[in-house]
Design a protein around this nucleic acid. Structure first.
Lengths: 186, 186
DNA sequence: GGCATCGATGTTAGTGACTAACATTTGAGA
DNA sequence: TCTCAAATGTTAGTCACTAACATCGATGCC
């Protein structure tokens, strides 16, 4: 079907779908990679050709260039933490999220799986470095930049994790509220 | 020797020493648990009786009650982020660090080992929860508390990791400077 | 001293994540 | 149809980690 839809892409999609479904059903730890592969009609080896690890299926880290760009748009004379926070806020507003559910599902799965939490937290590493680099490029000292970026991204993740757990506000609202904390609008 | 020095404690110490030395020499990933155990004159099984995982030897997480207490000492009418940051700052001042070197060695090892970074970041989880709980107890909303605690602890870790990497300031100075960023003393 | 006891360690045998090397299949163009 | 290369399969490992049961070693009691 769809001739040039790239076999690879379809296999990857099948693997990811199968994985999330099985994880949701039986739990992450109780599900083996072999089971996931089998459910996707494929070998374990193939799984690892598409995802570097079992964890990667749940948390993908596509260093968000939108966030970095939005940080760049903030006035450079703001304190680094505020600049980073406002950048993330702007990026989120620019990004039209049509449906909260998928985001919530994945974060929620990670949140309730102890072995996944660290990975989830680390999943923003690339974006964090991008933000820090941007701050440095605009004159912030490296140390201050790294700290500010780490604080903002950690805050964001913490907010999302809490939201996925038991909050029933909209995703957009949660992000705004989370960043308010960082900008210390007491 | 030292009759009642508890065999268990000595074994644990030997294991930890052997581990850190081997990790330092050959790298974390290239060192197997079996090698560590052997170097400590003990079995792999015994290693796991003392440390829950290979990672735990490097990053121990003793939920710092000092920090939580110090947060409690901050005026409750401050914005949560500032309150948390000042708490951490105070705790660090109260804590007399005699020698930076050991701290630096461990953080540095974790920093230059990709597979350890997530764990290192997660190693403050217990403290983070403690701080959040303290904030909630004093009237902060749970969401805001969780976010503030996460931001501050992440900032602290980021500062330490950078310091261990290439900064040669004193540990105390780095902590102060790191927290300055969070308190947005522009 | 001899003996019981219990914690610390050893042994054995596994599971499951991940990797390397080589073989096979599948699909698209010549 | 033939060809080539990418995608997948096969096989055979290593290593982190666990469970069950066996042994050892110091300590207290007689």
């Amino acid at each position: 079907m769809t001739p040039s839809d790239d076999r690879r892409a379809r296999t990857r999609a099948r693997l990811q779908a199968a994985a999330l479904e099985l994880f949701e059903q039986h739990g992450y730890d109780a599900t083996t990679v072999a089971q996931v592969a089998r459910a996707a009609g494929v070998t374990e080896m193939t799984f690892y050709r598409h995802f570097g690890s079992k964890e990667q299926v749940v948390v993908d880290d596509p260093s968000d260039p939108l966030i970095v760009a939005a940080v760049a748009d903030q006035p450079p004379d703001l304190p680094p933490l505020v600049r980073a926070a406002r950048g993330v806020r702007l990026a989120w507003r620019r990004l039209p999220i049509t449906d909260d559910a998928p985001v919530r599902t994945r974060i929620s799965l990670a949140a309730r799986t102890p072995s996944l939490l660290p990975v989830m937290r680390a999943s923003t590493a690339a974006t964090e470095e991008g933000v820090a680099a941007r701050l440095v490029a605009d004159g912030t000292a490296p140390h201050e930049a790294a700290v500010a970026a780490a604080a903002v991204m950690a805050a964001l993740m913490a907010g999302l994790v809490r939201w996925a757990g038991d909050d029933d506000a909209s995703l957009a609202d949660v992000v705004e509220r989370t960043l308010d904390v960082v900008e210390a609008i007491s």
